[in-house]
Computed example of a mutant assay.
Amino acid sequence: MRTCRVGLVGAGGVAQRHARVLSGFADVELIGVVDVTEAAAAELAGAHRARSYGDIGQLLDARPDAVYVCVPPFAHGPIEEAVVTAGIPMFVEKPLAVELPTAERIAGLVAERGLLTAVGHHWRYLHAVTRARELLVGRAARLVSGAWLDRVPPVPWWSRRERSGGPMVEQAVHVLDLIRLLAGEVTEVTAYGDGVAPPVDGADVDSVTVAALRFAGGAVGTLGATCVLDWKHRAGVEIVADGLALELAEDALTVRDADGQRRFEADPDGARVAVDRAFIDAVRGVGDDVRVPYAEALRTHRLAVAVAESARTGRTVRLTAGATRTAPVGAARDA
C-alpha cells in the first residue's frame, strides 16, 4: 500500500487535530468525514480536500484503508461495531466509552476479527516516558502519586456523568495509563468524590475525586483529580522507587537519584504526531510500533471505570487480572 486512505468519524477538536497531522503525511489521503453535525463534517472535509458523508455506512462504502473514531464518550459503540464488521483497521480516541460493557463488547469483536487497532494514548510516545521506564528497570515502584488538576472543558457533555463517564474516565485516564505502564497493574481501588458538581448547567460529576490504589507488585499510590480551576494546572505522575524519584508530566521528566537532579524535556506535540505515524505505518505494513491497541487500552479503561465506580458507590473495587469486569468488595462506606 503506497497511500493510506483514511476516513474520519467526528469533526470536533480532537478530530481536527488528527486531520491536521494526517494531512501532513505524504502517504495519507483523508478521503471523508462523518459527524452528526453535517455542517461541521463539511467544514472539516473541505479544509482537507475530502468529502463529507451522511453516515458511517456511506463512509465505509468509500472503502477507506483505515478509520479514525474521534467521538464523545457517549457515542462509542455502534460506530466501532460497523468498522470492525467491515474489517477495517481502526484508531479510537480515548476514552473507549462511558462505561465498561460497551468497551468489553468492542474488544471481543476486535479479537474475533484479529483487527489492527490503536487508541490515542499518545503520552506513551513521549521520549520522557521511555526514559522513565529505562530508569525503573530493576527498581520496583514503591509509591505512586498521580494528578489531573484542570478546568471544566468547554463542551456541554463533559460535566454530565452519563455522557462523559466523569473526570476519571474522560480526563485522568491519561494519567492512569501512565501509572499502569510505569508501576504495574492496580488490584484494588478505593475512591471518594466530593459530591459537589461544578457550576455548569446540568452538571452532576464530582468537582474533586481522590483514589487510593493498591498495586500487584506491592506499591501503593493515590490519584487526585479536580475541575475547579480556570486553567490546566498540572497533569502527571510521581513515582518513588528505592533511591529514585521521578516526576513525569506531558512536558518534562524530572529525575532525582544519587547523582543529583536532572530534567529531560518532553515534546507533547511530537508525541501526538508519533501516535498517528505509528498507526499509519502499521496499516501500510511498514511499521510495528502501535503501543496501545484496543485490548491494552481496555485494561486502562477498566481501571478508570473502577475508580469512578468506587467514588460513586462508596465501595472498594477489586480488579482481577484478565477479568471482564470489576468486583466491588466489602460494605459501603458511611456517607
Rank of each mutant, 00 (worst) to 15 (best):
A258T: 12
R161G: 08
D150G: 08
G87S: 09
T37G: 13
Y192Q: 14
S164Q: 02
E29G: 10
P64S: 07
T85H: 12
V307L: 02
G217Q: 03
A172K: 01
V14Q: 13
R49S: 15
A331V: 11
V175N: 07
T320I: 15
E162F: 09
W157T: 09
A97Q: 06
G243C: 06
I179S: 05
V155A: 12
S310Y: 09
Y125G: 00
C4T: 12
T316N: 04
E188N: 10
A42L: 12
S52V: 05
R51K: 14
G13Y: 15
A141N: 09
Y125N: 02
E309Q: 14
V175Y: 03
V200G: 00
A235K: 11
R133T: 13
E81G: 07
R63Q: 13
A235V: 03
A266F: 03
L136W: 10
A128M: 02
A297G: 04
R142Q: 14
E93C: 11
V173D: 02
A274D: 01
T117F: 01
Y192V: 15
T324E: 13
A191H: 01
D281N: 07
A197T: 00
L44C: 09
W158A: 12
V110M: 03
A40S: 15
V84F: 02
R131N: 00
E188S: 14
H121P: 05
L253C: 09
A282T: 00
A128V: 09
A107W: 00
V210A: 11
D242G: 01
R17F: 13
E93F: 01
V220F: 05
A86Q: 07
T326N: 14
L115E: 02
G54T: 15
R105Q: 12
E296T: 15
I79M: 01
D334K: 13
R302Y: 10
D267A: 08
V220T: 15
A306D: 08
S145T: 11
A212F: 14
D334Q: 14
E81L: 09
T37I: 15
A321G: 05
L59F: 11
E265L: 15
R302F: 00
R318K: 09
A75Q: 04
G114W: 11
V210M: 12
T313N: 06
R302N: 07
A132N: 05
T316G: 08
R20K: 13
D269P: 01
S52H: 10
V137P: 04
G217K: 00
I88W: 02
P198E: 03
C4N: 07
D61N: 06
R299L: 12
Y53G: 07
G166E: 06
A19Q: 06
P154S: 12
P64V: 06
A42E: 15
D27C: 07
R302L: 12
P78Q: 11
A19H: 08
T102I: 10
R105H: 14
H76S: 08
E81K: 13
H121G: 00
R277N: 01
H233L: 15
R284A: 15
G10P: 07
